[in-house]
Nucleic acid binder design. Sequence first.
DNA 1: ACCAAATGGAACATTGATGTTCCATTAATG
DNA 2: CATTAATGGAACATCAATGTTCCATTTGGT
Lengths: 173, 173
Amino acid sequence: MLGRDYHATLADIADAAGVGRTTLHRYFSDRTGLISAAIEDSIAAIDESVAGAAIDQGSPIEAMRRLVTAMVAVGDRLVFLFGDPRVLEGRGAAGTPAPLDDPVIALIKRGQAEGAFDPDVTPAWIQRVLWSLVYTGYQDADACGLARHGIVSAVIRTLENGIHTPTPEHRQV
Amino acid sequence: MLGRDYHATLADIADAAGVGRTTLHRYFSDRTGLISAAIEDSIAAIDESVAGAAIDQGSPIEAMRRLVTAMVAVGDRLVFLFGDPRVLEGRGAAGTPAPLDDPVIALIKRGQAEGAFDPDVTPAWIQRVLWSLVYTGYQDADACGLARHGIVSAVIRTLENGIHTPTPEHRQV
DNA sequence: ACCAAATGGAACATTGATGTTCCATTAATG
DNA sequence: CATTAATGGAACATCAATGTTCCATTTGGT
């Protein structure tokens, strides 16, 4: 709910959750508390999903495909956390830099070192591209004529080859 | 300003513009009026920039490169118009579908027909990818170690080739 | 210098979201 | 069935953003 609209009213959220606004306040002291709880929950879910992808193992390309799959699976959490820059704003200096930044950057650097990924762009750029394609795939799936299960393959395909017609050596399954 | 934060306070906007809040109200009857004016202005600027790219001429790849350049040049307007889905929400049925959808889709279809672009994904998907890369490039330029002038080339490079190490036949200038 | 227009600040009413309190109703547990 | 906890609704105070009015000041043109 907060992922779809970060400024949703507490009344709307309560309605969407099927509870009264009073009950919502009983569980979360104030709006900040609710947001914090949602952030913690989302980070945990994302961490778990990404950890399951074991991106430090196997070939970088295969690892990246597993990562995309894992990210799309928790797309709603990603949209919530990173869709509105204000969500994670107060957390920059404090603790976690971002839930999954470090292992992803490590994977990208490994892929560049092994010759799998474009070495002429920064790892940070590749990371943003990854994120933005996952976001786009998850967010605009229906607008792009993509079925839910088609998101992952479309994201992987475009992430790996861009929009050019694939060359034989880069063709994937 | 509204592009950075769609929910910016009128007082903040007035401050950023270097005028008093009263003066702001004198030019725009209410917040809706201000938003509308900003939308009109942004659409005009985008239309002008994209028209200058003449994407119906030349090879699809060259046209797409010109389009990316034109889009990055009006990145702030794009961020404002499409960054928050609420901005253009009330305009769906009324008039313009979106300022530049049709010519871009036409370019993509032409590129697919001529064998330049991946024919196995929908034009709508390619369009979203294009938009999301431009958005990412414009928005996160500094976080990705990209100088302002490096955005266009990074976006084009990744859009065309993905994150794979480029093959000789696909290498660009 | 003078006048007209525009500006910015202050004060005010209004609105919507929020947080709180109280109470009736419902669900769960013995 | 009786007791207890949880729930949802209503009412209220608070606060921030908004829109309005009024007035002193500044700006620009003559």
